[in-house]
């Protein structure tokens, strides 16, 4: 069922905010409203559960509220579906939910670890030929193209076009620009209350080892007034891990499982 209004969604979710619920859905009202406006949000609801589907190009992202680990018969997995379940060691209900989705045809693609940088941690920039600045609206296509080159289309949490434009307008995208004017790198910021999330950071292959990532990171922290920052990183992303750890990020006990159903 496609969701037509925030009020309808709010009523749906509120019915499932019950003791013992397992969920990976923590969207903010503003984000839900945008998805609804784009006609990108649909739900499947039954007595003991609610699934939220966010339509993306060629696949859908899924979030869930489950009171019990069971599904009714429905056909909502007719297209590739990805979901991510973040938890700490103590969140046993979510570990069980991860196993449950695997029993429903989802495969574990990889796990990610969350790193946190305490607020007001200083991060230095380095000498670099790349100039870091905010992305302008006219640069959205170039930024989107660089994102598509650097991240997986389905599991890379790539923003939809409307989301990208919205984030540019809100000054949530920084770029590193080569002397030629080419966009050599990007950093995508997510806002979470008083803290921020480093959603994407990438430097094009031909511009690496020039200080771009370090300067994007330093500029991001300065731009966000050195608010507390979190980043999710794959264990096999050694370059990324070293960048974060060298700048003071620390594992904070959160891990996530990225699940995919073709």
């Amino acid at each position: 069922m496609q969701i037509e209004s925030y009020e309808a969604l709010s009523a749906c979710i509120s019915r499932h905010l019950r003791r013992g619920v397992a969920t990976n859905a923590f969207g903010a009202k503003e984000a839900y409203i945008k998805e609804i406006k784009e006609k990108a949000l649909s739900v499947e609801e039954w007595d003991d559960g609610l699934l939220l589907f966010y339509q993306r190009s060629g696949y859908q992202r899924m979030q869930f509220y489950l009171q019990s680990l069971s599904l009714p018969e429905f056909g909502c997995f007719s297209q590739p579906t990805v979901t991510e379940i973040a938890s700490r060691e103590k969140d046993s209900a979510l570990h069980q939910a991860t196993a449950f989705w695997q029993s429903q045809g989802f495969s574990l693609l990889y796990e990610r670890q969350r790193l946190t940088l305490a607020k007001q941690t200083p991060v230095a920039s380095v000498e670099s030929p790349l100039c870091v600045r905010l992305v302008g609206p006219e640069e959205a296509p170039a930024v989107a193209a660089l994102m598509r080159r650097c991240f997986d289309r389905i599991t890379g949490c790539l923003p939809a076009q409307w989301e990208l434009c919205d984030d540019i307008e809100k000054e949530n995208l920084l770029c590193a620009v080569a002397p030629s004017g080419e966009i050599a790198g990007l950093l995508h910021i997510g806002r979470e209350g008083a803290g921020t999330q480093l959603r994407h950071i990438a430097v094009a292959e031909n511009f690496r080892r020039q200080g771009g990532a370090q300067n994007l990171l330093a500029a991001y922290l300065q731009h966000t007034q050195h608010a507390r920052s979190v980043v999710w990183v794959r264990p096999d992303n050694e370059a990324g891990r070293q960048l974060y750890l060298n700048n003071g990020y620390q594992p904070d006990g959160w891990r996530s499982a990225v699940l995919y159903r073709p």
Binding site: F26, R88, L94, K119, G195, R228
Partner: peptide, 9 residues
């Protein structure tokens, strides 16, 4: 929330 003591979950 602001200091990350409580999370969304």
């Amino acid at each position: 929330i602001d200091d990350g003591i409580l999370e969304s979950l």
